[in-house]
């Protein structure tokens, strides 16, 4: 029972959702809609668990005065303050909660994201070396496409935007399609193994 029940649940929900796909009847649609909510609700409990973990880790760090313990105070107080302001102060456009989001969280996220402008340059510099024929092809296409996307590219050669467009819509498309077909077959097979109870690593190993 202890070992079987989770596998039975997996199988029943899995097959149930497959069958649901083929039934246009409103009852089936209603079940599907309801099931999405169920998954969202269940997932929310994991957030509770995750946040609990964060509290434990940071609390221990503070209590034991581990290196950087005071940084944990920042995380915990930011977490508590933001959550409380949101829950008690509302989350509409003009709330303090939104200000925190717009002027603290968002700028830092955007700044993190924009680090990529630097990283992409350094990655290209380091690894775009014509070591092998394959690497050479990669570096040449990348250069063509890079130039084909900016005005200066068409100053160098008029046809560059056209070539860029052509590479993207033929060779590049073909390879992506090939990879995606394989990925599709692989992920369907894995999903089927999950339903059959053969793939159960998500249950936390062995038993």
């Amino acid at each position: 029972m202890k070992r079987r029940l989770p596998l039975i649940i997996v199988m029943l929900t899995g097959i149930g959702m497959i069958i649901q796909y083929f039934i246009p009847h409103p009852v089936s649609k209603a079940i599907y809609k309801q099931s999405i909510d169920w998954v969202i609700i269940i997932s929310a409990f994991y957030l509770v668990l995750g946040v609990g973990g964060i509290f434990i880790i940071n609390y221990q760090k503070i209590k034991r005065r581990k290196e950087g313990w005071w940084l944990s105070i920042i995380t915990l107080s930011a977490l508590i303050i933001t959550a409380l302001i949101g829950i008690f102060g509302g989350i509409d456009n003009k709330s303090v909660f939104m200000d925190i989001f717009m002027y603290i969280q968002l700028p830092m996220q955007a700044a993190m994201f924009s680090l990529l402008a630097f990283y992409i340059a350094s990655a290209a510099f380091r690894s775009f070396r014509a070591r092998t024929p394959e690497a050479t092809v990669l570096l040449i296409t990348a250069t063509i496409v890079m130039l084909g996307r900016v005005p200066i590219g068409s100053l160098i050669y008029r046809g560059l935007p056209g070539i860029t467009e052509w590479i993207l819509s033929t060779v590049s498309l073909a390879a992506q399609r090939g990879i995606l077909l394989g990925v599709g077959l692989g992920s369907i097979a894995t999903s089927m193994k999950i339903i059959l109870g053969i793939e159960r690593s998500y249950l936390g190993g062995g038993e």
Partner: peptide
């Protein structure tokens, strides 16, 4: 298996397992 991200791993990692090779 995120096709869009594979080029970046290829440039910055020592080994890259591509697409369904991961499964």
């Amino acid at each position: 298996d995120a096709v869009d991200q594979l080029p970046f791993f290829i440039t910055s990692c020592d080994y890259t397992i591509m697409g369904e090779e991961l499964y």
